[in-house]
Design a protein around this nucleic acid. Structure first.
Lengths: 261, 261
DNA sequence: CGCTGTCTTGAAACTGCTCAACGCGTGTGG
DNA sequence: CCACACGCGTTGAGCAGTTTCAAGACAGCG
């Protein structure tokens, strides 16, 4: 059950909580609206590539809906999906490393606000609320990356997969009529493997094992259902952190909160 | 100026490389000086732990000299050094993931500016140059992390070690009288292994192999000498990116610029 | 209908991990 | 001064998990 799982989350240290203590005056959505007034809204399709420069200058993006992926390809064919960006996330081209074949693309259809970085930077300077929004987005993304780093660096195959599935389930899962959490799996096997630092074959095997164990089911491609989130959480050492990151709020509420514009 | 350190703080040093082109009129060093005026300067020793909260509120740091390490420890004893912070880098406690046993500590002696995050945030809001400094620092750190992510996710043991050594050599190496680049290795074997997502034994073996091949020598603990940087670069697919990140300038110049104390 | 791209699965090869032992420098107490 | 313990790095042997390579299943699409 989603709702009960949140109860088990222990209160993290106050300082490590990414959410700001300052209370905003404006209703939610206003910041995004104000940002949108100064940006081009780009509608992206799955797989669509997003240019990192914009009319010769550095581009920046705020994800409004959908998800993006940043990957690098190093000489020798080493490919790594470095980060995933979700609604509310902020990305500027300078986040991508130089000389690394960096590439930003959509993994699911959605809307992205596109800026010149200089423009977004000015907005940040002129509007404290926008500044807070961006600062918090960056902090949230960074702490997510830290967990992911630990997963890729230290977990075995099954733990990595469980970590990723749990993130997905908590972020975008909705309660299925038959019980459990249903969610989209925007990445294909190769991208998912490259995100988790695994071989695609190994990943496939691991998913099969999870399916065989009854934890996971796969009604169709790009879609999954988790029967028992707690059982999944038991498979990853990062469960606590993921719960803390993806919040106390039930997955459905989160979904609405983040996906509305 | 708030100074908790017993030592009288000296005029902050120019960190020119931290803020590339965007800075406008002020001479280099001014930004750090202005930051220093609103922060406590903390002198850290090797191994010293740095608290993530400051009088109950979120702390933030700007590294002036030395290096820090952020590591997490997940249930089950999974330990990962998530990031290293060098002079000019900016860190706020919210960068550390919640419920992950996050821990910030010094890996070499140095000076750190400590803020309340709310205070630094205000500085950023009030001073466009400080804003640019912080934005660039974050971007630089993020792109470094991306390369590191690719290394941990995709490289084999030797490639990871070569990548790390090359980073160190380019960042802090100085031309040795006997030819080659000499530099400090601030991390001990365990930390280095946890940074690279390797087993300490395996890491030791790999270093031994490099030593045997004549590429690397180890005059004393915490110190190394690279005979031929190009040969080392040939071992890592990330060589190009590292060169781009750590710049064209000769290692000695960089050293003076970054490490002066 | 056959093509193509994606996913799955098997068996063999290999890399890196585990565990245990050893060397070495340092600090400490008899 | 020596004995000893301790932290840290090194090394070896065996093992486990992942990757590799190759083949087959499946769905989407011309």
């Amino acid at each position: 059950m989603v709702t009960t799982s949140a109860l088990k989350t222990r209160e993290p240290l106050p300082l490590t909580s990414a959410s700001p203590s300052e209370t905003k005056v404006s209703p939610p959505g206003t910041v995004l609206a104000r940002l949108g007034a100064h940006a081009a809204t780009v509608r992206v399709r799955r797989g669509q590539s997003v240019a990192l420069s914009f009319e010769g200058s550095e581009a920046a993006f705020v994800v409004r809906s959908g998800a993006l992926m940043l990957h690098v390809t190093l000489p020798g064919g080493f490919r790594q999906v470095v980060a995933l960006f979700y609604p509310g996330d902020v990305f500027r081209a300078a986040f991508a490393p130089p000389a690394a074949g960096a590439h930003l693309s959509a993994v699911s259809p959605g809307d992205v606000l596109r800026f010149r970085w200089s423009g977004l930077s000015q907005l940040v300077a002129s509007d404290p609320e926008i500044a807070g929004f961006v600062e918090n987005a960056v902090a949230r993304q960074t702490s997510r990356q830290a967990i992911h780093m630990a997963a890729v660096g230290r977990f075995d195959c099954q733990q990595r997969v469980a970590t990723y599935l749990m993130e997905l389930a908590m972020r975008t899962g909705v309660r299925a009529p038959c019980g459990g959490l249903a969610f989209e799996m925007p990445l294909n096997r190769t991208d998912m493997a490259d995100y988790l630092g695994l071989n695609a074959d190994t990943l496939s095997r691991t998913m099969s094992r999870l399916r065989a164990s009854g934890l996971l089911s796969h009604p169709e491609r790009h879609r999954a259902l988790i029967r028992d989130l707690d059982a999944l959480a038991a498979l990853t050492p990062a469960a606590q952190s993921i719960r803390a990151l993806y919040g106390k709020m039930p997955a459905d509420a989160r979904h609405e909160c983040l996906m509305t514009d």
